[in-house]
């Protein structure tokens, strides 16, 4: 049974349903995915609208309220210079989610594109895989230092200090983390390419572009989904390493990874400083994972038919 035959009964069904409506129906039936989407939506709403409701400035220090435990005035407590943790977690979430999702998207786009091209077109395989090896071997830290040296001032001048750094970080994380995805996708495509349904599609003269989008891509979705889940977590954490090294956002710019890093030495004294950012990172990754699971199942023609 191939893709083509699998979709045949759907097309023949009396009420015409589009592919995407079908995917959505299947997705809704996936309980984990729905819960994941709910949690993710909640986190998104919280970080977007939260700072409007909880109006304490995350950067405001209060030297009389240092290391406070949870209270009504500070639901998540305060840090060692008296900054409100809730405000910091909300503000940090905006940055971390934006960095995580965008960097992951960049990395998946590059990784999937290179993987598919290298796996499908044999003559591209050599050069693209050598390129992958080059990127795998590059030491990230010096690369960052050089990128910041070369581009920071230009980006800062064109986009302002924050947006400039954001672009730089997203691009750097994106272009240094696509290699694993590319290798995995390439491996999968190499096997898929020899499968009957692809050969069949090719033999009836389907254009190569269409073979790739219609037959190859849907079948390599699951490793991509896994990479994407791991990618979000990795990007959020890489960002924290960057700020820790002084290569990331300005120091008065909280992010989840950085809050976790700064809080780790206060773990026994004020556990809230690590629990909240840690919890939000984990919840985000967990919910993205379940959404990914649901999407994969929903997109899989073999499962969807049932």
């Amino acid at each position: 049974m191939t893709d083509a035959t699998a979709s045949a009964p759907v097309a023949a069904a009396p009420a015409h349903r589009s592919l995407w409506a079908d995917v959505w129906r299947q997705f809704r039936a996936h309980r984990g995915a729905m819960i994941g989407a709910g949690v993710f939506g909640f986190i998104l709403l919280a970080v977007i609208f939260g700072p409007m409701l909880w109006t304490i400035d995350p950067g405001e220090t209060n030297l009389r309220a240092r290391n406070q435990p949870m209270s009504w005035a500070h639901p998540f407590g305060t840090d060692n210079v008296g900054r409100d943790m809730l405000a910091q977690v909300l503000a940090g979430g905006r940055v971390s989610l934006a960095v995580g999702i965008t960097a992951m998207a960049v990395s998946m786009l590059i990784g999937a594109a290179i993987g598919v091209l290298a796996g499908y077109f044999r003559r591209l395989d050599g050069p693209l895989m050598r390129l992958t090896e080059l990127f795998l071997a590059l030491p990230i830290l010096p690369l960052l230092l050089v990128a910041i040296l070369l581009f920071r001032d230009t980006l800062r001048a064109n986009f302002g200090p924050e947006a400039g750094v954001f672009l730089l970080i997203v691009l750097i994380i994106g272009i240094t983390s696509w290699m694993q995805t590319a290798r995995i996708v390439r491996g999968e495509v190499q096997t898929l390419k020899e499968r009957e349904f692809v050969l069949a599609a090719q033999s009836i003269g389907t254009k190569e572009g269409r073979v790739i989008t219609r037959h190859i891509l849907p079948n390599v979705l699951s490793p991509i989904m896994v990479s994407a889940t791991i990618g979000i977590a990795a990007a959020i954490i890489t960002e924290s390493t960057l700020s820790f090294l002084g290569l990331g956002f300005p120091p008065d710019f909280p992010t989840w990874g950085r809050l976790l890093f700064d809080g780790k030495d206060f773990m026994t004294r004020s556990p809230g400083r690590v629990i909240w950012p840690g919890l939000f990172i984990s919840l985000t990754v967990l919910s993205v994972n379940f959404i990914g699971d649901g999407l994969r199942d929903a997109m899989d023609p073999r499962i969807r038919g049932r």
């Binding site: 220090t61 060692n80 120091p251």
Partner: peptide
């Protein structure tokens, strides 16, 4: 870490 805390406080 300490320098970044100082920066935040002095900025304030």
């Amino acid at each position: 870490a300490v320098r970044q805390e100082f920066q935040a406080i002095i900025k304030e």
